[in-house]
Computed example of a mutant assay.
Amino acid sequence: MTADIIDISRHREKALRLACAVLAEGFPVVIPTETVYGLAADATNPAAITRIYETKGRPRFNPLICHMADLAMAERYAIFDPISRMLGEMFWPGPLTLILPLRSDSGIHSLATAGLDTVGIRLPKGFAADLIRAFGKPLAAPSANTSGKVSPTSALHVAEDLGEKLKLIVDGGAAAVGVESTILRVENGAIRLLRPGGVAAEEIEKATGLPVIRPEGPAAIIEAPGMLASHYAPGAAVRINADHVERGEVLIRLGSVQVKGSEFATAIFDLSPSGDLAEAAANLFDTLKRADATGAARIAVTPVPDHGLGEAINDRLARAAAPRE
């Protein structure tokens, strides 16, 4: 089986019809979102959810984010405290996921939540929201890539990785944000950051007037996607915060910085020649894939400022560079 690819810039209504048909059969569909491309399936159908895990080779203890069409739909599946509701009203639709208690009658299958009594909920923009509305059920949708590897920001990335395992890929062009959603959990009136992402923590603090509490050390339990120590990894080893280049390495830099030994680099890529962190985030995964495609054994990445979207970029790079099992 090789996936059909349909471009929504020319065939949007057809893409909606075909995607709904595949979802109704209990199979996953690849959809574009503003963050990365998602491998979406009916969150209430255990067979469909199982196919997500099998297609990705994803550990079943790693929960999935469930995507909703609007806040009213989300409230039918999860319980919102006042702060979580405020966050949803401020940042949805967009690259924010909230971890919320499941309603007892939600219908979201326990395979999607990895057996937890909570669920990660996000409201995406554009085609994804239209598809959920047309299908009428929430869609569980992790990134559409082999588990642990670099996330896809284009339909081509997905086709090269998983194309032979899929029925349909919906092509919506390059993902605008380029990194996954920020994941938050509100507990006892405090906002905890479980994964930095497309909404900067500083932006959340400014909007709410509340501090965002960062984790201290590695997570003891997996309560949201993206918390595995080794994740987002290319085939090559990744060396972060590099101040020099070793012979045969590929260099990824930010802001056209001059790096000692760059003449020894197999290739040089720049996440953003101007140093713009939003541009760097949008280019991160594609650049890692391009660097990996050179065949070099190691990728050296220069330091990235740890503020704004730089926090999400550094999170992904640290996981890409982590020791692999």
Rank of each mutant, 00 (worst) to 15 (best):
P82A: 12
A175W: 10
V177T: 13
I108Q: 13
L277C: 05
R247E: 15
R60M: 14
V199R: 01
A144C: 02
A220C: 12
A278W: 09
L100V: 04
L111I: 10
A175R: 08
K260S: 14
L131Y: 05
I65V: 13
E325C: 09
F80V: 09
A233M: 09
T294V: 13
G255Y: 06
A112V: 11
A233W: 04
I65G: 10
A312H: 12
R103A: 02
R58L: 06
R58A: 06
K206Q: 14
G261H: 03
V245K: 00
F61T: 05
M68L: 10
V36W: 05
S84T: 11
L102A: 05
A321M: 01
A128W: 06
Y53C: 11
R247I: 15
G148L: 05
R58H: 06
T302N: 08
T113L: 08
D81I: 03
G163F: 07
A141D: 11
N314W: 04
K137Y: 12
R60K: 14
V36F: 06
A40C: 09
C66V: 15
P46K: 03
L210N: 01
K260Y: 14
R298E: 15
L317T: 00
L166R: 06
D161Y: 07
T182L: 08
H244D: 14
V199T: 02
A293C: 13
G163V: 10
V250K: 06
A129Q: 01
T294C: 13
L210W: 01
F127S: 04
T182E: 07
R192M: 14
G173N: 06
A267L: 05
A236Q: 13
Y37S: 11
K14M: 07
H11I: 07
V179R: 06
R51C: 10
S104Y: 14
F285E: 06
L123A: 08
L18P: 10
A291S: 13
G261F: 04
E164Q: 15
R247L: 12
G275I: 03
G26L: 09
E202T: 08
V158H: 02
F264R: 14
L96A: 03
L123H: 07
T118R: 11
E263G: 15
A3D: 04
R316P: 01
R195M: 06
V301N: 00
S151G: 07
E160K: 12
E246R: 15
T182M: 10
P138Y: 11
T266N: 10
R133N: 11
R58E: 04
L16A: 02
P124R: 09
A322E: 02
V199E: 01
G26D: 04
L111G: 07
